[in-house]
């Protein structure tokens, strides 16, 4: 088995130590950092996401895999910068104003990272303007909003309206989620995408970006 596919295998098993060591080894072997990232780390994380959706693995496995990914990334990142690797895309994420539930948001952040995104987590209880200012500042592709309360869901609408007002609506892909949110609500407020869980969110985000790059 090649070092690269071993990275993917060990990552799926959540073996942070092995992943770290294998990434170091691959760098020493002169592998392209982009290949280590895409075919090793991200490939492993995407497979875990797939298997999660098929109910073959559960939250704990995803968590340990993501931790292993993070361990590998800390080593690989300087190399990626050296070769000028661009992330798949950039996303700003936060829980909307008035709401402080953050676990869902944290998991989405984790999975988006695993899909190769650069993530800007702006926390909880986030004002509409803060979402937009941050997205503008970092040149984001996607704005992700999480809301867990029926009383705070309308805040998503507020952000979208503010984007429209500023003439920025089409510049960003808006994704929404959280337990009480559903497809219908997403359509109603004019969001681009809704997904049920963090794994599908990451997959959808990746596909949108790839599609956008093609078209």
């Amino acid at each position: 088995m090649s070092t690269i596919s071993e990275i993917s295998e060990f990552l799926q098993k959540g073996r942070a130590k092995n992943v770290k060591q294998l990434v170091t080894q691959a760098i020493e072997e002169g592998e392209d950092p982009k290949v280590i990232l895409n075919d090793g780390l991200l490939n492993g994380m995407m497979s875990i996401g797939e298997r999660f959706k098929k109910n073959e693995v559960f939250v704990p496995e995803v968590l340990v895999a993501a931790r292993a990914l993070n361990a590998g990334l800390t080593i690989l990142e300087p190399k990626l910068i050296e070769v000028g690797n661009e992330p798949v895309g950039k996303a700003v994420i936060g829980t909307v104003k008035g709401d402080l539930h953050d676990i869902g948001k944290n998991l989405v952040t984790m999975m988006l990272k695993g899909a190769g995104f650069e993530i800007f987590d702006i926390g909880v209880d986030v004002e509409a303007d803060v979402f937009i200012d941050k997205a503008e500042e970092v040149g984001a592709d996607i704005i992700c909003m999480s809301a867990l309360l029926t009383t705070t869901m309308p805040q998503m609408q507020v952000v979208i309206d503010a984007l429209k007002e500023k003439g920025l609506r089409d510049k960003y892909i808006v994704m929404v989620g959280g337990a009480p949110v559903n497809q219908k609500f997403a359509e109603q407020i004019g969001a681009d995408y809704y997904t049920e869980d963090a794994a599908s969110c990451a997959e959808a985000a990746r596909q949108v970006i790839l599609k956008r790059a093609e078209g």
Binding site: L63, V64, R67, L69, N106, L107, T109, D121
Partner: peptide, 14 residues
Amino acid sequence: VSDYFKSGDYVKGM
């Protein structure tokens, strides 16, 4: 909790 998530230790975070 936040610090664990930020540092990428999702296991400890959760």
